[in-house]
Design a binder for these strands. Sequence first.
DNA 1: GTGGTCTAGACCACT
DNA 2: GTGGTCTAGACCACC
Lengths: 136, 136, 136, 136
Amino acid sequence: MTFDFRISTGSNTPIFRQIVEQVRLAAAMGRLAAGDALPSVRALAERLVVNPNTIAKAYAELSREGVIETRPGKGAVVAVLRDVYTGAERQRRLAPAVETLVREAVSLGFSCQQVQQLVGKQFKKVIGGQERREDL
Amino acid sequence: MTFDFRISTGSNTPIFRQIVEQVRLAAAMGRLAAGDALPSVRALAERLVVNPNTIAKAYAELSREGVIETRPGKGAVVAVLRDVYTGAERQRRLAPAVETLVREAVSLGFSCQQVQQLVGKQFKKVIGGQERREDL
Amino acid sequence: MTFDFRISTGSNTPIFRQIVEQVRLAAAMGRLAAGDALPSVRALAERLVVNPNTIAKAYAELSREGVIETRPGKGAVVAVLRDVYTGAERQRRLAPAVETLVREAVSLGFSCQQVQQLVGKQFKKVIGGQERREDL
Amino acid sequence: MTFDFRISTGSNTPIFRQIVEQVRLAAAMGRLAAGDALPSVRALAERLVVNPNTIAKAYAELSREGVIETRPGKGAVVAVLRDVYTGAERQRRLAPAVETLVREAVSLGFSCQQVQQLVGKQFKKVIGGQERREDL
DNA sequence: GTGGTCTAGACCACT
DNA sequence: GTGGTCTAGACCACC
């Protein structure tokens, strides 16, 4: 199975971190299985139109964390799972993002309903994008 | 009532931003009312054991945003709450937090409803039923 | 086209503010278009013979206001023009200049019509008949 | 003839400067004649509810400029006129305020008409205030 | 190379 | 005493 990378330049979170988190989460959720091959640094860099150093940095961090294994000349493959997120762990992982959103929303004067509506909109936007995935 | 500032050095969010967000949130929630005095730059710097410039930077940003008013010789006081940004701008400023939350939620396998529910819960936890604006 | 920054040390308006106002005005008039690159902090600091921090401060304020967008590694570019402030807020921000003008005009014995005429003349001098917004 | 001092705390222009400019302009316009007495430092400070040091600073600057003469124990009186503003000189004096206003107005996206309207409003506010002057 | 943050210390203006 | 500005120099993260 190939993986659908999505990055957004112009975001406050650096590109290399976006890649790291996507791979890490996909592995923890089982959407990437042990042994699955990742695109080469150069190929992915070209596809996402970013500097190869950025991809290399992301792969290096993933390798350091044990999420992937890289062998020179043979590319990178997903390593055997270390831990899987389930139940309370998933919620614990999501909590900071929820707290940040609500904190900023209150500061900006949004109501609860408005924020929930915006979340719903963004959800549709992301899910809709996933269903018509035609790239690699 | 004096305001209870809490900062954590070694966080990924810079110190001056932690201060800005605390004051902004407290003002939006009414925990800081118009006219309330903030500690002086030097006093707060000493209390938090940081450089006065760092505090000054935070106060300057709050002043530019219209959250507080500062005047040399006098200190800094909380300004009257008012709508500074257009609806579109407020939405734009909230967008990154929404996107981050939804991206992580999707990666972790949450449904839209589940996330909206978590947002609702956090909202109630932060504010006690009080609202301020209804416009979007 | 590169932008022609002009500052005067020894002015009552601080250097960083001179820079902010020049960019803000140029962006509002279209002399700086969305996507135009600004000189790097260090380059501009060297050119104007000021401390890089002073330039960084100016860029930070422009960034917070949404006039430019900055990203480490890339430089600073002009953002798309948009309405950031509510009508009331824009009026509030213009108020001090209006009050100063009228106070001085009254002291100097100008009539209201005369001042309005001078304003009209100066307006035409600054912009060449181009307008951008009609809402108040 | 007594003089109608008007200051606005919460303005960006310092209080002592507001006083200096009012007296200077009134003298140059002939509304204050040579020999006219100014209120004592303490009396004016009490009336405007500001620190006596602020008034003293303003009087000191006026004295340094030769606009007034202060004799210990005898209060301050307006000095003989040095220069009178007429015609082009008056316009030259007003120009900076006009330029500042228009520059900021354009930056904030105001149209010429809108600014002229705001000037008109402020003019009525100031003139109206002058006509019902009942204070000293 | 880029911008962002923080420290240290100086000087100024205002009250 | 207050906040505001500027300099000098350090360190970090990102590309």
